[in-house]
């Protein structure tokens, strides 16, 4: 019994995926982490200094809703306080946060489609679907390759810049409307959705596009009739995954001055009203949860339909 077990363990251990590069990578990662903790100037024990603990105690006292501070707990008072805060600004800011995330992800899908299609080699090459005996003219092949590389480079740049930074730059240019938040989230996610979409198009089965092409369909027709319906479920899954992150980020972008939840969080922080600040952060968490649930339901519908 135990011999068989040991043999089985030994067999599995020997058949594990192995690679020198992977091993070196793990060592490098461990080294990086050790260096960060030892040589990076991080002193965790400093968090427990007397000054910080006093600060923490004061903070915990101020987190209690203002009308309840220094009094016995009264649920009615607490609820009235929370209700006033919601009506005054919480609900409107929450709706704005959701609206920003929706507008941004729709923009990201549109821009991502425009950038992602020419980045897929199965769409953007001289003859992507049929074996073509004639070699394409060098300038033609070069132009297609340039299109692929160019759109990929644009997408890398869009997603390498954090959305918070994009918003900061747009805010300086456009002033405090909702546009900076929508553009920032939209462009960053266009880079991500475009990349994922291009990969999905490259990994899709070639049979249907080939058959359509063989019947004489144009490039646009093959993409619209053959490729798009096949990759659509996957694209929709990515769309909803990224929308979840958009909801999170839309909350935070308000801290730059756009009137989403983050704006009021920052405002409460500036006035040292920590009770309001924590309440609004929790409201933000609730919105993120709502977004997650809606997204999960939508993804299930998409999965079942495909």
């Amino acid at each position: 019994m135990s011999a068989a077990r040991d043999a089985e363990i030994g067999r599995l251990w020997r058949s594990r995926p192995r690679s020198r590069f992977a091993r070196a990578s793990v060592v490098a990662m461990l080294g990086l982490v050790a260096w960060a903790w030892i040589g990076g100037g991080l002193v965790p024990s400093e968090l427990l200094s007397a000054r910080r603990l006093a600060n923490l105690e004061r903070f915990l006292g101020e987190v209690t809703p203002y009308p309840l501070q220094g009094r016995t707990f009264d649920l009615g008072v607490a609820l009235r306080w929370a209700g006033d805060l919601l009506v005054e600004r919480g609900l409107a800011a929450a709706a704005t946060t959701l609206a920003i995330s929706v507008a941004a992800i729709v923009l990201a899908a549109i821009v991502g489609a425009v950038l992602g299609a020419p980045a897929a080699r199965t769409i953007a090459s001289p003859e992507p679907w049929l074996p073509d005996p004639r070699r394409p003219a060098a300038p033609v092949a070069f132009a297609w390759r340039g299109l692929v590389t160019g759109s990929r480079a644009v997408m890398i740049f869009l997603r390498a810049i954090p959305e918070y930074l994009w918003a900061f730059l747009f805010l300086a240019m456009l002033g405090p409307t909702a546009w900076p938040a929508v553009l920032a989230l939209g462009l960053h996610n266009a880079g991500i959705l475009g990349k994922l979409g291009a990969e999905a198009a490259e990994n899709a089965s070639r049979r249907e596009p080939q058959a359509l092409r063989g019947l004489g369909a144009s490039r646009a027709q093959v993409v619209a009739i053959g490729l798009l319906p096949m990759t659509l479920p996957r694209l929709l899954l990515y769309f909803f995954y990224r929308w979840e992150t958009c909801v999170r980020e839309a909350t935070v972008l308000g801290m730059l001055g756009i009137v989403s939840l983050g704006y009021w969080i920052q405002d409460a922080r500036a006035r040292n009203h920590y009770d309001e600040m924590v309440f609004l952060i929790l409201l933000g968490a609730a919105i993120v949860l709502i977004g997650d649930v809606v997204s999960a339901v939508a993804r299930r519908v998409v999965r079942r339909a495909s």
Binding site: L56, V252, R269, I281, G284, V288, L289
Partner: peptide, 15 residues
């Protein structure tokens, strides 16, 4: 469900 920047804001206020 709480963004890292909001965790940072909380910790800044608390510690």
């Amino acid at each position: 469900s709480v963004h890292e920047l909001l965790w940072a804001v909380l910790f800044l206020a608390a510690l």
